[in-house]
Amino acid sequence: MTRVRYLIARRVVQVAILLLYFGGNYYGWKMLTGDLSSSSILGTVPLSDPYAVLQMFVAGAVISSNILIGAAIIFLFYALIGGRAFCSWVCPVNIITDAANWTRRKFGFDMVAKKQPSTRHLRYWVLVISLIISFFLGLTAFEFVSPISMVHRGIIFGMGFGWAAMAILYLFDLFVLKNGWCGHICPLGGFYSIIGKFRLLKVKHDSVACTGCMNCKVVCPESQVLHMIDKVSVPVTSGECTNCGRCIDVCEDNALGFFLKVKNNNEGEINNEKNE
Protein backbone atom coordinates (compact mmCIF):
# COMPACT_ATOMS: atom_id res chain seq x y z
CA MET A 1 0.00 0.00 0.00
CA THR A 2 2.76 2.41 0.85
CA ARG A 3 4.17 1.91 -2.64
CA VAL A 4 1.28 3.77 -4.20
CA ARG A 5 0.53 6.27 -1.44
CA TYR A 6 1.31 9.47 -3.35
CA LEU A 7 0.01 8.01 -6.60
CA ILE A 8 -3.40 7.43 -5.07
CA ALA A 9 -3.32 10.79 -3.30
CA ARG A 10 -2.62 12.52 -6.62
CA ARG A 11 -5.40 10.72 -8.44
CA VAL A 12 -7.83 11.60 -5.65
CA VAL A 13 -6.86 15.29 -5.84
CA GLN A 14 -7.01 15.36 -9.66
CA VAL A 15 -10.40 13.68 -9.84
CA ALA A 16 -11.83 15.68 -6.92
CA ILE A 17 -10.92 19.00 -8.54
CA LEU A 18 -12.47 17.97 -11.86
CA LEU A 19 -15.54 16.67 -10.03
CA LEU A 20 -16.00 19.98 -8.21
CA TYR A 21 -15.77 21.89 -11.50
CA PHE A 22 -18.16 19.47 -13.15
CA GLY A 23 -20.63 19.79 -10.27
CA GLY A 24 -20.26 23.55 -10.43
CA ASN A 25 -21.53 23.51 -13.98
CA TYR A 26 -24.06 20.67 -13.99
CA TYR A 27 -25.35 20.71 -10.41
CA GLY A 28 -24.82 24.34 -9.50
CA TRP A 29 -22.32 23.63 -6.70
CA LYS A 30 -20.64 26.78 -5.49
CA MET A 31 -17.43 25.28 -4.04
CA LEU A 32 -15.35 25.56 -7.19
CA THR A 33 -16.72 27.02 -10.43
CA GLY A 34 -15.12 27.72 -13.77
CA ASP A 35 -12.25 25.60 -15.08
CA LEU A 36 -8.47 25.39 -14.87
CA SER A 37 -8.03 28.60 -16.87
CA SER A 38 -9.89 30.68 -14.33
CA SER A 39 -12.16 29.77 -11.49
CA SER A 40 -13.71 30.95 -8.30
CA ILE A 41 -13.83 29.36 -4.86
CA LEU A 42 -17.25 29.80 -3.22
CA GLY A 43 -17.91 32.62 -5.67
CA THR A 44 -15.43 34.88 -3.88
CA VAL A 45 -11.76 33.87 -4.14
CA PRO A 46 -10.57 34.16 -7.76
CA LEU A 47 -8.00 31.80 -9.27
CA SER A 48 -6.42 32.21 -12.70
CA ASP A 49 -3.82 30.46 -14.80
CA PRO A 50 -0.83 32.84 -14.71
CA TYR A 51 0.53 31.55 -18.04
CA ALA A 52 -2.82 32.26 -19.77
CA VAL A 53 -2.81 35.72 -18.18
CA LEU A 54 0.75 36.30 -19.40
CA GLN A 55 -0.37 35.48 -22.94
CA MET A 56 -3.36 37.82 -22.59
CA PHE A 57 -1.02 40.57 -21.40
CA VAL A 58 1.38 40.05 -24.30
CA ALA A 59 -1.58 39.97 -26.71
CA GLY A 60 -2.52 43.44 -25.49
CA ALA A 61 -5.66 42.67 -23.51
CA VAL A 62 -6.82 44.83 -20.65
CA ILE A 63 -6.39 42.54 -17.61
CA SER A 64 -9.16 42.87 -15.04
CA SER A 65 -8.26 43.09 -11.35
CA ASN A 66 -10.20 39.87 -10.69
CA ILE A 67 -8.01 37.97 -13.15
CA LEU A 68 -4.86 39.63 -11.88
CA ILE A 69 -5.54 38.71 -8.24
CA GLY A 70 -6.42 35.15 -9.28
CA ALA A 71 -3.20 34.78 -11.25
CA ALA A 72 -1.18 36.20 -8.35
CA ILE A 73 -2.67 33.66 -5.92
CA ILE A 74 -1.84 30.73 -8.18
CA PHE A 75 1.58 32.14 -9.06
CA LEU A 76 2.56 32.62 -5.43
CA PHE A 77 1.27 29.21 -4.39
CA TYR A 78 3.36 27.34 -6.96
CA ALA A 79 6.36 29.67 -6.82
CA LEU A 80 6.63 29.56 -3.03
CA ILE A 81 5.37 26.11 -2.16
CA GLY A 82 4.27 23.65 -4.80
CA GLY A 83 6.73 24.19 -7.62
CA ARG A 84 5.52 22.22 -10.62
CA ALA A 85 2.92 20.41 -8.52
CA PHE A 86 0.17 21.60 -10.89
CA CYS A 87 1.45 19.13 -13.49
CA SER A 88 1.21 16.05 -11.30
CA TRP A 89 -1.49 16.92 -8.77
CA VAL A 90 -4.02 18.93 -10.79
CA CYS A 91 -3.57 18.63 -14.56
CA PRO A 92 -5.82 15.89 -16.02
CA VAL A 93 -3.40 15.30 -18.89
CA ASN A 94 -1.07 13.80 -16.30
CA ILE A 95 -3.41 10.81 -16.00
CA ILE A 96 -3.17 10.21 -19.75
CA THR A 97 0.60 10.56 -20.02
CA ASP A 98 1.14 8.47 -16.88
CA ALA A 99 -1.00 5.79 -18.53
CA ALA A 100 1.16 5.98 -21.66
CA ASN A 101 4.29 5.66 -19.53
CA TRP A 102 2.85 2.71 -17.66
CA THR A 103 2.04 1.00 -20.97
CA ARG A 104 5.57 1.72 -22.17
CA ARG A 105 7.08 0.06 -19.13
CA LYS A 106 4.62 -2.82 -19.00
CA PHE A 107 5.13 -3.86 -22.61
CA GLY A 108 8.75 -2.86 -22.84
CA PHE A 109 8.45 -0.25 -25.59
CA ASP A 110 11.37 1.50 -23.95
CA MET A 111 13.56 -1.36 -25.14
CA VAL A 112 12.59 -0.76 -28.79
CA ALA A 113 13.06 3.00 -28.91
CA LYS A 114 15.69 3.89 -26.38
CA LYS A 115 17.19 6.97 -27.93
CA GLN A 116 15.34 10.17 -27.18
CA PRO A 117 15.36 12.27 -30.35
CA SER A 118 14.46 15.51 -28.65
CA THR A 119 15.69 17.83 -25.94
CA ARG A 120 13.69 18.64 -22.85
CA HIS A 121 14.50 22.31 -23.40
CA LEU A 122 11.98 22.25 -26.23
CA ARG A 123 9.24 23.40 -23.82
CA TYR A 124 11.03 26.70 -23.17
CA TRP A 125 11.23 27.30 -26.90
CA VAL A 126 7.51 26.55 -27.21
CA LEU A 127 6.88 28.95 -24.31
CA VAL A 128 8.78 31.76 -26.02
CA ILE A 129 7.16 31.08 -29.40
CA SER A 130 3.68 31.10 -27.82
CA LEU A 131 4.36 34.57 -26.44
CA ILE A 132 5.68 35.81 -29.80
CA ILE A 133 2.59 34.53 -31.61
CA SER A 134 0.33 35.99 -28.93
CA PHE A 135 1.99 39.34 -29.43
CA PHE A 136 1.76 39.41 -33.21
CA LEU A 137 -1.69 37.90 -33.66
CA GLY A 138 -3.25 39.59 -30.63
CA LEU A 139 -4.66 36.46 -29.03
CA THR A 140 -3.71 33.80 -26.51
CA ALA A 141 -1.79 31.44 -28.80
CA PHE A 142 -1.41 28.40 -26.57
CA GLU A 143 -4.99 28.58 -25.28
CA PHE A 144 -6.14 28.14 -28.89
CA VAL A 145 -4.40 24.79 -29.29
CA SER A 146 -3.89 23.55 -25.73
CA PRO A 147 -4.79 19.88 -25.34
CA ILE A 148 -4.84 20.49 -21.57
CA SER A 149 -7.77 22.83 -22.04
CA MET A 150 -9.45 20.44 -24.47
CA VAL A 151 -9.32 17.71 -21.86
CA HIS A 152 -10.37 19.56 -18.71
CA ARG A 153 -12.91 21.75 -20.47
CA GLY A 154 -14.17 18.64 -22.22
CA ILE A 155 -14.79 16.95 -18.91
CA ILE A 156 -16.43 20.00 -17.33
CA PHE A 157 -18.45 21.45 -20.23
CA GLY A 158 -18.68 18.78 -22.94
CA MET A 159 -16.07 16.91 -24.93
CA GLY A 160 -16.83 17.22 -28.67
CA PHE A 161 -13.87 15.79 -30.53
CA GLY A 162 -11.67 16.41 -27.48
CA TRP A 163 -11.30 12.65 -27.09
CA ALA A 164 -9.11 12.78 -30.21
CA ALA A 165 -6.74 15.13 -28.38
CA MET A 166 -6.60 12.62 -25.53
CA ALA A 167 -5.85 9.78 -27.94
CA ILE A 168 -3.16 11.83 -29.68
CA LEU A 169 -1.45 12.59 -26.37
CA TYR A 170 -1.56 8.95 -25.33
CA LEU A 171 -0.26 7.60 -28.64
CA PHE A 172 2.39 10.31 -28.94
CA ASP A 173 3.79 9.57 -25.51
CA LEU A 174 3.54 5.85 -26.07
CA PHE A 175 5.05 5.49 -29.54
CA VAL A 176 6.79 8.72 -30.54
CA LEU A 177 8.53 10.23 -27.56
CA LYS A 178 8.79 9.06 -23.99
CA ASN A 179 7.37 11.74 -21.67
CA GLY A 180 6.77 13.57 -24.94
CA TRP A 181 4.03 15.99 -24.03
CA CYS A 182 4.59 16.69 -20.32
CA GLY A 183 8.36 16.32 -20.34
CA HIS A 184 9.30 17.96 -23.64
CA ILE A 185 6.63 20.09 -25.29
CA CYS A 186 4.09 21.49 -22.83
CA PRO A 187 4.85 25.22 -22.34
CA LEU A 188 2.66 25.33 -19.23
CA GLY A 189 4.97 22.75 -17.65
CA GLY A 190 7.89 24.89 -18.80
CA PHE A 191 6.30 27.93 -17.23
CA TYR A 192 5.83 26.19 -13.89
CA SER A 193 9.39 24.79 -14.13
CA ILE A 194 10.69 28.33 -14.26
CA ILE A 195 8.55 29.83 -11.52
CA GLY A 196 8.86 26.75 -9.29
CA LYS A 197 12.64 26.88 -9.11
CA PHE A 198 12.65 28.35 -5.61
CA ARG A 199 9.78 26.35 -4.14
CA LEU A 200 9.84 25.26 -0.52
CA LEU A 201 8.44 21.76 -1.00
CA LYS A 202 11.17 19.54 -2.37
CA VAL A 203 12.19 15.91 -2.50
CA LYS A 204 15.24 15.09 -0.39
CA HIS A 205 17.65 12.26 -0.98
CA ASP A 206 19.70 10.26 1.49
CA SER A 207 22.51 8.61 -0.46
CA VAL A 208 23.64 6.63 2.57
CA ALA A 209 20.37 4.76 2.77
CA CYS A 210 20.21 4.41 -1.03
CA THR A 211 21.09 1.01 -2.45
CA GLY A 212 21.18 2.23 -6.02
CA CYS A 213 18.31 0.11 -7.30
CA MET A 214 17.26 2.97 -9.60
CA ASN A 215 13.56 2.23 -9.20
CA CYS A 216 13.06 5.96 -8.78
CA LYS A 217 14.74 6.83 -12.07
CA VAL A 218 12.60 4.27 -13.90
CA VAL A 219 9.31 5.82 -12.79
CA CYS A 220 10.37 9.47 -12.74
CA PRO A 221 8.82 11.42 -15.66
CA GLU A 222 11.68 13.95 -15.42
CA SER A 223 14.49 11.56 -14.54
CA GLN A 224 17.20 14.14 -15.26
CA VAL A 225 16.28 15.88 -11.99
CA LEU A 226 17.36 12.78 -10.05
CA HIS A 227 21.01 13.11 -11.04
CA MET A 228 22.11 12.87 -7.37
CA ILE A 229 20.69 9.43 -6.74
CA ASP A 230 23.21 7.13 -5.06
CA LYS A 231 25.83 9.88 -5.28
CA VAL A 232 25.20 12.82 -2.96
CA SER A 233 22.64 13.61 -0.32
CA VAL A 234 21.16 16.81 -1.72
CA PRO A 235 17.54 17.69 -2.35
CA VAL A 236 16.06 17.83 -5.85
CA THR A 237 16.45 21.48 -6.79
CA SER A 238 15.57 21.45 -10.48
CA GLY A 239 12.36 23.28 -11.27
CA GLU A 240 11.44 20.50 -13.67
CA CYS A 241 10.61 18.14 -10.78
CA THR A 242 6.81 17.91 -10.58
CA ASN A 243 6.73 16.90 -6.90
CA CYS A 244 4.66 13.90 -7.91
CA GLY A 245 6.22 11.75 -5.19
CA ARG A 246 6.35 8.68 -7.38
CA CYS A 247 10.06 8.22 -6.58
CA ILE A 248 9.23 8.27 -2.86
CA ASP A 249 6.53 5.66 -3.44
CA VAL A 250 8.81 3.19 -5.19
CA CYS A 251 11.87 3.69 -2.97
CA GLU A 252 12.31 0.62 -0.81
CA ASP A 253 15.21 2.05 1.18
CA ASN A 254 13.61 5.18 2.65
CA ALA A 255 16.21 7.20 0.78
CA LEU A 256 13.72 9.70 -0.63
CA GLY A 257 11.06 11.87 0.98
CA PHE A 258 9.33 15.26 0.85
CA PHE A 259 10.52 18.07 3.02
CA LEU A 260 9.31 21.61 3.44
CA LYS A 261 12.09 24.10 3.72
CA VAL A 262 10.52 26.86 5.78
CA LYS A 263 13.62 28.46 7.23
CA ASN A 264 16.90 28.89 5.42
CA ASN A 265 18.74 26.02 7.06
CA ASN A 266 20.07 22.68 5.99
CA GLU A 267 17.16 20.64 7.24
CA GLY A 268 16.67 17.77 4.86
CA GLU A 269 20.14 17.95 3.47
CA ILE A 270 22.18 15.16 4.90
CA ASN A 271 25.75 16.18 4.66
CA ASN A 272 27.59 12.91 4.87
CA GLU A 273 28.42 11.59 1.47
CA LYS A 274 28.39 7.98 0.51
CA ASN A 275 31.51 5.91 1.15
CA GLU A 276 32.84 8.50 3.49
Binding site: N25, S38, S39, S149
Partner: peptide
Amino acid sequence: DFLKTCIKCGLCVDACR
Protein backbone atom coordinates in the same frame (compact mmCIF):
# COMPACT_ATOMS: atom_id res chain seq x y z
CA ASP B 1 -10.70 42.29 -28.21
CA PHE B 2 -12.92 39.46 -27.07
CA LEU B 3 -10.51 36.82 -28.38
CA LYS B 4 -7.58 38.20 -26.39
CA THR B 5 -9.52 39.04 -23.23
CA CYS B 6 -11.69 35.94 -22.74
CA ILE B 7 -9.81 33.46 -20.54
CA LYS B 8 -12.18 30.61 -21.47
CA CYS B 9 -13.19 29.78 -17.91
CA GLY B 10 -16.81 28.99 -18.72
CA LEU B 11 -18.22 30.89 -15.73
CA CYS B 12 -20.76 32.51 -18.09
CA VAL B 13 -21.84 29.03 -19.20
CA ASP B 14 -22.14 27.97 -15.53
CA ALA B 15 -24.30 31.02 -14.85
CA CYS B 16 -26.42 30.44 -17.96
CA ARG B 17 -27.05 26.79 -17.11
